[in-house]
Design a protein around this nucleic acid. Structure first.
Lengths: 158, 158
DNA sequence: GTTGCTGCAAACCCTTTGCATAGGA
DNA sequence: TCCTATGCAAAGGGTTTGCAGCAAC
């Protein structure tokens, strides 16, 4: 698919980067939904995958501008949903009263711990919890697709 | 505090209703914060405790109006925070793109399962999960204050 | 060539704020 | 009485939308 020189030999399609994986995933999603594969959508995807933090729409728009890619705010907003539906982008609630995002690929299910003293955010994951959540979903006759979990706490005094 | 006839004898302060408990809690919170105990704040508290579902600010405003209590939207917004701080009201994210609330008293920690097929919401709780979350918080040097957990899934085909 | 996408700017909606007045303590 | 809270209406900020031109397929 990609002809970018990713390693010395091109014999085996050596492990694709997260971006390449996302690109392929997005391309398929767009095709399935009969949406066009436009340069703007690719630019947005690139920036989403380039950022490894939590970002607002405004910050993403700034990133794009900084990278020399002109994508209007309207187009940005219009395409966030398809990125979410494609399983590439996820909303994050950090309790700070504005929507933030993070990319999903290369991360897998995880959740956020937020320190209420200073707003610091850490990520973590737990197979044990996931297993419990799946059981809970099943109990209510659901197949778990995803979950959102935020743990809020104050700094522990020893 | 309240002289409303809650039972035959007034010998022992028999189990207070959720509303009475919330009222007391709120009164103390307001005093601690040096905020006034106004009729509007009481009216809002009443409605919050009267609703046993998830509601938006707009819906709460409608409830108040329907109950014959005139509270302006501005006042409503201005007082949501103190209700949250008092531990009476909590925000709920049901993945439907607008803030909703629920009252906390008489419910305790719980979480929401959301069906992606039709948006149906169920509540549940799990001591096991809470224990894990506390351990996780501790691991990151936090004292857990609260958590938000939403489980999304599609209806299970047997 | 057709159809859907983008950019622009205006519209929208929810929430916050300034100011004069009302009402707790 | 003093000072905060309220109501109103206007402002604010983030998100959506209508329309004309442009770019995928």
């Amino acid at each position: 698919m990609s002809n970018k020189p990713s390693s010395k030999t091109s014999a085996t399609p050596s492990k694709p980067t997260d971006f390449e994986e996302a690109l392929e995933k997005y391309r398929e999603h767009l095709k399935r939904k009969r949406l066009l594969f436009t340069r703007e959508r690719i630019a947005i995807l690139e920036e989403v995958m380039a950022r490894h933090d939590h970002f607002s729409v405004e910050e993403l728009h700034d990133s794009l501008k900084a990278a020399g890619k002109k994508v209007s705010r309207a187009t940005l907003y219009r395409n966030l949903d398809s990125l979410k539906e494609a399983g590439i982008l996820a909303e994050v609630d950090l309790g700070n009263r504005h929507v933030q995002y993070e990319h999903v690929l290369g991360h897998g299910h995880h959740f956020h711990l937020v320190c209420e003293d200073d707003g610091a955010v850490v990520e973590d994951s737990s197979a044990e919890i996931e297993k419990l959540l799946e059981a809970l979903a099943r109990k209510h006759n659901l197949d778990l697709t995803h979950f959102k979990l935020q743990i809020f706490g104050t700094r522990r005094r020893k």
